[in-house]
Computed example of a mutant assay.
Amino acid sequence: MEFHLKTVLLIFALLIFVGLIVQVKQKKLDLQYTMSWIVMVFGLVVVILFPGLLSTLTMIMGVSTPVNMIFFLGFCFALLIIYNLTKYVSKLSGEIKSLSQSFAILEKKMKDGYHE
């Protein structure tokens, strides 16, 4: 990989990392949602600095070319993000259900107390 390309990719990774940190500090993103993206940026930096690792991993996994390995890793990363988002949505759905039930109980108590 050429020095110019490495430099551009490292700057790109740094900008993504800084953007993530800024959004966490501004409370636009929760840290728990950001961790998988930070891991992805770290992995990208490792592959940029040590491109031989990707070739070695490609041979170990039995993938035909490093480009296919990148697509495979991207697919795995997308599945990880989808799983995490599904987990968080499920948790929030349970919280919404609990809050709705609590609200309904309080509303019922208020109506019963008001009519007595």
Rank of each mutant, 00 (worst) to 15 (best):
Q26W: 01
N68A: 12
A13N: 12
K28R: 12
D30S: 12
Q32T: 06
D112H: 10
Y83T: 11
Y33E: 14
I48Y: 02
M35N: 06
A78S: 14
I96A: 05
C76I: 14
I11S: 14
M110N: 07
L53D: 01
L73Y: 13
K111T: 11
I38T: 03
Y114I: 05
I48W: 10
S98L: 07
V63I: 15
G113T: 05
L54F: 03
T7L: 15
L85Y: 13
K91D: 10
V8K: 02
G43R: 02
M69P: 04
F12V: 06
L92K: 08
Q23C: 06
G74Q: 08
I16F: 09
M59Q: 09
K27P: 00
G74I: 11
Q101D: 09
I82P: 01
Y88Q: 13
E116F: 02
N68L: 13
K6L: 05
F77L: 08
K28N: 06
G94A: 06
K87S: 09
T65F: 01
L54R: 02
L53H: 06
F75M: 11
V22C: 00
G62M: 13
G113W: 10
L14R: 01
M61T: 09
M40Y: 13
I105S: 04
S36K: 01
L99Y: 09
D112N: 09
I38D: 01
V45R: 00
M59K: 09
P66M: 03
V46L: 12
F72N: 11
M40V: 10
F12H: 03
S90G: 14
I96V: 15
I11R: 08
E107L: 11
L85S: 14
S36D: 04
K109E: 15
F75N: 15
F3E: 08
K108G: 01
M59Y: 00
F3K: 03
K87Y: 11
I48P: 03
L20P: 00
K6S: 15
A13G: 06
Y83L: 12
G94C: 08
E107T: 06
T86Y: 03
L31R: 05
I11F: 09
M35A: 10
L10R: 02
L106E: 13
L15K: 01
D30M: 03
F42D: 08
S36V: 14
T86G: 05
K97V: 12
G113S: 13
M61K: 08
P66K: 00
I38P: 02
V63M: 13
G19A: 02
P66V: 00
A78Q: 02
N68W: 12
F42G: 11
F72E: 03
L80K: 04
V63A: 12
T86K: 04
G52F: 11
V46I: 14
Y88C: 05
G113N: 01
W37S: 15
V18F: 01
V89F: 07
S100K: 11
H115D: 07
T34C: 11
S90Y: 06
F71K: 09
